[in-house]
Amino acid sequence: MAGAQGSDPTGEAPPVIAVVGPTGSGKSDLAVSLALELDGEVINADSMQFYRGMDIGTAKITDAERRGVRHHLLDILDVTEEASVSAFQHQARAVVADIHSRGKRAIVAGGSGLYVRAALDVLEFPGTDPDIRRRLEAELEAAGPAPLRERLEAADPVSAARLGDARRIIRALEVFELTGRPFSSFMPERKYFQPAVQIGLEVDRELLRERLAQRVHAMVERGLLEEVRRLDAAGLRHGKTASRALGYAQFLRVLDGVSSVAQATDETILATRQFARRQLTWFRADPRVHWLDWRDSDLMNKAAALCGTPPDPPLA
């Protein structure tokens, strides 16, 4: 029996719901259950699930697993396109407004922390300049990352201390040249753009480690290598974002003959576990997240109660 509709007699939209946590913790399943209970629709906030054809390696929710619930912002990019947090922010907020206008609940689900914040929080994104970007990338190619890092340390020591990879250093320098402001000045306070509630899935870390290993092995058995081979033909390795996805980067090396399937599987398991730890660190830093035990037999009812619309009582 479905719970109360998302409309509010006062005319105000209900809070946006976000289901967050590490990869493999069951976010997609809980989001679908909440959508069925609260008459909602799900908005994807996993940046790698934007890509068409990246299904096995991203554990993208299948049509059967969606159980009839409408999902948004899945399969919206080709693998050669670059994902943009700024573009996602505009898309996600437009989808939230549409869902609420139809009296339904908007449920954001995903483990890409910055994308979740882009959907929920007051968050300003500086523009881009392709000419500046190309020049900085040429400098990186010619001299390596050290000179760029030194320049960033002088202009924006806060960002220099936070950012590790060359791509992010280039972005920080681009923003500084474009705006005259340090990239770190654009980091937001934890302030919701509109009312929201975040539900985090609390995991047993050792059980999660085992689950992630089993999941990667299952992906390989389902045809991950063949999926990577097909996407490689479609330009995967030329995509700045998609080519770095967990599993895809590792299995591209199998296609290149530099890794075996067994090696790529082990590397993917390790990288996935490391990613899950980073996700937990990210979401744990947000005091607004309500944490629930991922294995609680009453998980869905407890989550629904947090959303401001309790489910109907069970039938006698």
Rank of each mutant, 00 (worst) to 15 (best):
M1V: 14
Q5K: 00
Q5C: 03
Q5Y: 02
S7H: 10
T10R: 12
A13L: 01
P14E: 07
V16P: 07
I17F: 03
I17E: 09
A18D: 06
V20P: 14
K27P: 05
A31T: 12
A35H: 05
A35K: 04
L36A: 09
G40A: 04
G40V: 07
E41P: 00
I43T: 04
D46E: 15
M48G: 00
G53V: 01
G57D: 08
G57P: 07
A59N: 15
I61K: 08
T62C: 12
E65W: 01
E65M: 12
R66M: 09
G68Y: 05
V69T: 09
L74F: 15
L77N: 10
V79A: 11
E81W: 08
V85L: 06
F88P: 03
F88N: 05
H90N: 09
R93I: 12
V95H: 00
I99D: 13
I99F: 07
I99R: 07
H100Y: 00
R102A: 10
R102L: 04
I107H: 14
G110Y: 12
G111Y: 13
G111P: 11
S112D: 05
Y115I: 03
Y115M: 14
D121E: 15
V122M: 10
E124N: 06
F125G: 02
T128I: 02
D129C: 13
D129P: 11
I132D: 08
R134G: 02
R135S: 12
A138L: 09
E139W: 01
L140W: 01
A142H: 08
P145K: 04
P147D: 00
P147L: 01
L148I: 11
E150A: 15
E150H: 05
L152K: 06
E153N: 06
E153A: 14
D156H: 08
A160K: 10
R162G: 01
A166W: 14
I169S: 09
I170F: 05
R171A: 05
E174A: 10
E189F: 06
R190Q: 13
F193T: 03
Q194D: 12
P195N: 06
Q198K: 13
Q198P: 01
I199Y: 06
I199A: 12
G200K: 08
G200I: 10
E202Y: 10
V203R: 11
D204T: 11
D204G: 13
R205G: 00
E206D: 14
E210Y: 00
A213G: 13
A213P: 04
H217R: 15
H217W: 02
A218H: 13
E227G: 03
R230F: 01
A234E: 15
G235T: 03
L236K: 09
L236Y: 05
K240Y: 04
T241Y: 07
T241I: 12
S243V: 02
R244H: 12
Q250N: 10
R253K: 15
A262D: 15
Q263S: 14
Q263M: 12
A264M: 08
E267M: 11
A276S: 10
A276G: 07
L280N: 05
L280C: 02
W282A: 07
R284F: 05
H290M: 02
H290A: 08
H290N: 13
D293E: 13
W294R: 11
W294Q: 09
W294M: 03
L299F: 09
N301Q: 04
N301D: 09
K302S: 13
A304D: 08
A305C: 10
L306D: 09
G308Q: 01
T309G: 08
T309P: 01
P310G: 11
D312I: 07
